[in-house]
Design a protein around this nucleic acid. Structure first.
Length: 802
DNA sequence: AGCACGCCGACT
DNA sequence: GTCGGCGTGCTC
């Protein structure tokens, strides 16, 4: 077994296989599956993952592994298999799937160096370049005027050679600590030698005899109540020394979080948790759909189920949408399980993520709370996986590997024979349909734990407002309610549902819309810089003063940004203090929390924001929720637009009156009769489900049909159309009768970065070999992909049909 | 992907 | 002789 099978860090379909390498004697004992290694690959050196060991290879001349990068495997055998499964399910490369399971810092960085191999004089440009050094970075050469041709000659002469390096991005954090430099019994002896007057020094020494071996200076001085000079005196005597010690970065100050105890469950909660606990106790896999209205206490069920898992010595993964992974949420888990929790989300620095990941890897925690990628936490003894707000689209990764965390969770749940909990007030149709069929177990929570009814929802028809001569974005009803609310000293949350409503620039005379010259999409107006920007490429231009088509001066920006709403409120209700929360105001780390804290501290009357304020936030004093434009995403070309509208309205309504005060919700819309708005206002999930299912069945959409989306892009439009047609035809030849292949049609954004984009959509009920077919077809175009810059991407079960 | 190698045309 | 620009084939 001295040959290793290695998945190599080269993301190319022709390299998507294992490569065999000899394991040199010195690594024989230590090398395990799932470790990262450095291997020679052609002329260079690259990183790879060991995925197996064999004693024979069909290859004659094997190279040796150069270096082993890990002391313990970074991927367990389960995760290696999972990687294979993910790559296969999502039609992505093995290496991409493996990298997705690890923190970014474990990715290798590559560098090249030029090494001087001779003391003899080098040809002139190189002497200047090296300037007396023996090694320079390749970049330095590339940035110089020296030609590659000249370098080749010197390399052939053997006077310079290229070294290929694999560098690690890992950074560890260290603190300087004070430690005893001798064992305790020798310190005792030293104690006797100290002069009787050196009281503080004696105290210090006794501290080290009695206590831990190392401590931060600041803490030490506090505990012993002395100054640096005493410490220094003992150091000079050689009794104490400074020591650099590695510490884990700690993004959350555990000590400051108040511990909580389990709450008594309501009868409903108890009924819901029983079967989950039974699955944990008897160690079998099942998927539970926990359908509970907002405020029904889903989180408490999670917490108690996790407690059961911890008691059994097992581990738990909790997935939450990125957007709701707020300090409030973290606090609930840390409050119950303290330092036994690792937190993983994008706001952490790369180093912090790495440290949280290592806590899991070293089994220092039993719980991880995190966004999508936390589903790959390297636990080996999982007892439960929980997906909160399971309807959130962020669980689907939008770039390769395009996996869905729900599918991965269920796969891991089967492996570990543990339950998977999907929780939501507004489950996806897919999940609810499965629960209805008995594939998932359904648990329903209809009551809020505070016994308060859901807030009453008023729908305001904005067309009537217009007829009545109200041209502002606030209906009379909403304006009045805001004023009353502020008068009572209560707070307001205003949701601007901005999707599909970005601020574009249009000429009022000729209707010309300013588009990106490289992409077929309207440019977005940015007020603070007075610039037009493209969100798909890096194009920027200044705001024109006249229409480029008709020279009219009446060129303006349209759409409703949060900034404009803010201005409008201040005009309409001058006494209102408004806090704005959107992508612009939350870009800086920690600004999210800052805004929320200000609002909790009642520094403002109105919290105005986009989707991010709809989720999981819990404010005592909020009694009014206003939705400015409920239907803004209803008309998007997306078969889920009704479902998304229903979900958003239900979620945001749940923000009002969560505590003692009763809440009120006002929803403004131009389509007040639309079923997703009407039924959301009645909190009627069941009717919505039935109605929407009916539409999905008629139009052959999920959950009745599965989807696969193939997108083809190229600089040459004719080539894209031709290739797309070929692909569609090849597909149709293989697929079943009831499978539909739509297209090719231009993508919703037909051109991005000067590349034309066409797509084929496959709708199918049962195609066990679909992935095989697609792979084969894509393979047929491999040559053009490689040589002609053709791009074919496949998205199984896509969420965004872009 | 990223690298070497080979061939070609261009420039001085 | 020197240089950059492709196209091609290979990586255990």
């Amino acid at each position: 077994m001295n040959i290793a099978k290695v998945i190599v860090d080269v993301p190319a379909s022709s390299i998507n296989q294992t490569f065999d390498y000899y394991i040199p004697e010195r690594f024989q004992e230590i090398l395990e599956n799932g470790m990262r290694v450095i291997v020679p690959f052609g002329p260079r050196k690259i990183m790879g993952f060991v995925v197996g060991r064999v004693s024979e290879s069909s290859f004659k001349r094997l190279k040796e592994i150069v270096e082993v990068l890990d002391l313990t495997p970074v991927l367990t055998n389960e995760l290696l298999d999972l990687g294979k499964w993910v790559a296969n399910e999502t039609l992505s490369l093995s290496i991409t799937a493996l990298q997705a399971m690890l923190p970014q810092v474990l990715k290798a960085q590559y560098e090249k160096e030029l090494i001087r191999m001779t003391d003899a004089e080098l040809p002139e440009p190189f002497e200047t370049l090296f300037a007396g050094r023996d090694v320079i970075s390749f970049d330095e050469f590339a940035g110089s005027t020296v030609s590659y041709y000249q370098l080749q000659k010197v390399i052939q002469e053997g006077d310079i050679s290229i070294e290929y390096l694999v560098k690690s991005k890992i950074t560890k954090k260290y603190v300087t600590k004070i430690a005893a430099s001798r064992p305790a019994h020798l310190l005792e002896e030293a104690l006797l030698d100290l002069s009787p007057s050196a009281k503080k020094q004696k105290q210090l020494l006794r501290f080290f005899i009695e206590n831990e071996t190392s401590i931060e200076q600041k803490k030490l001085l506090q505990l012993v109540n002395t100054t640096t000079s005493t410490v220094k005196a003992l150091m000079d005597k050689g009794l104490l020394e400074t020591k650099r010690e590695e510490v884990f970065r700690n993004p959350y100050n555990d000590a400051e979080i108040e511990r909580t105890n389990p709450l008594t469950l309501t009868e409903e909660q108890q009924i819901a948790i029983n079967p989950i606990n039974e699955a944990i106790d008897s160690q079998y896999h099942d998927v539970f759909l926990l359908h509970g209205v907002t405020g029904s206490g889903k989180t408490e069920i999670y917490l108690q189920a996790i407690q059961n898992v911890i008691n059994k010595g097992k581990e738990a993964i909790v997935l939450v949408p990125e957007i709701s992974l707020t300090p409030q949420m973290v606090k609930r888990f840390k409050g119950r399980f303290g330092a036994n929790v690792a937190v993983m989300h994008s706001a952490l620095s790369a180093g912090e993520k790495f440290d949280e990941w290592r806590k899991i890897q070293r089994k220092e925690v039993q719980v991880v709370v995190g966004a999508r990628s936390a589903v790959f936490a390297p636990f080996e003894n999982l007892g439960i996986i929980i997906i909160d707000e399971e309807h959130e689209t962020t669980y689907k990764q939008e770039d390769q590997p395009r996996y869905h965390a729900r599918d991965v969770s269920i796969h891991r749940g089967e492996y570990h024979q543990c339950p998977v909990i999907l929780g939501s007030a507004t489950p996806t149709l897919e999940s609810y349909a499965r629960a209805s069929k008995g594939v998932y177990k359904l648990a329903t929570l209809n009551k809020r734990t505070n016994d308060k009814p859901m807030p009453k929802v008023d729908i305001v028809d904005m067309r009537e407002e217009l007829h009545a001569g109200n041209r502002t974005m606030f209906s009379r009803k909403l304006k009045e309610s805001i004023e009353l609310c502020i008068e009572r000293g209560e707070q307001v949350v205003l949701l601007l549902n901005r999707r599909g409503y970005s601020t574009f620039v249009m000429c009022r005379d000729c209707g010309h819309v300013k588009e990106c010259p490289h992409c077929d999409i309207a440019l977005t107006y940015h007020k603070n810089s007075n610039q037009l920007k493209c969100h798909y490429c890096s194009h920027e231009e200044s705001m024109p003063s006249a229409c480029p088509e008709c020279q009219s001066k009446l060129i303006r920006y349209f759409g409703t940004g949060t900034q404009r709403v803010e201005e409008a409120i201040t005009q309409l209700i001058p006494e209102a203090r408004v806090l704005r929360m959107d992508v612009d105001t939350t870009r800086r780390k920690g600004s999210h929390e800052k805004i929320l804290k200000q609002f909790v501290d009642r520094k403002a009357d109105i919290l105005l924001g986009t989707q991010m304020i709809a989720k999981g936030l819990d404010f005592e004093n909020v009694t009014l929720v206003g939705v400015l434009t409920a239907d803004s995403m209803l008309h998007l070309p997306d078969f889920r637009s009704s479902e998304k509208t229903f979900q958003l309205l239900t979620q945001v309504s749940g923000r009002a009156g969560r505590h003692e005060l009763t809440g009120e919700v006002i929803v403004q819309t131009y389509t007040p009769e639309h079923y997703s708005i009407v039924l959301a206002s009645e909190y009627n999930f069941n009717d919505f489900y039935n109605k929407e299912m009916n539409t999905r069945r008629i139009f052959q959409y999920p959950p009745y049909f599965y989807l696969a989306l193939i997108t083809i892009s190229h600089k040459n439009r004719v080539k894209v159309i031709q290739t797309s047609q070929q692909i569609a035809q090849l597909l149709m030849r293989q697929l079943q009768q009831d499978t539909v292949v739509l297209g090719p049609t231009p993508s919703p954004i037909p051109r991005i970065k000067d590349r034309y984009r066409y797509q084929c959509m496959i709708k199918y009920r049962n195609e066990p070999d679909l992935r095989v077919y697609i792979r084969k077809i894509v393979e047929q175009f491999a040559d053009e992909v490689r040589k002609d810059d053709l791009l074919i991407t496949v998205d199984m079960q896509p969420y965004h049909l872009m």
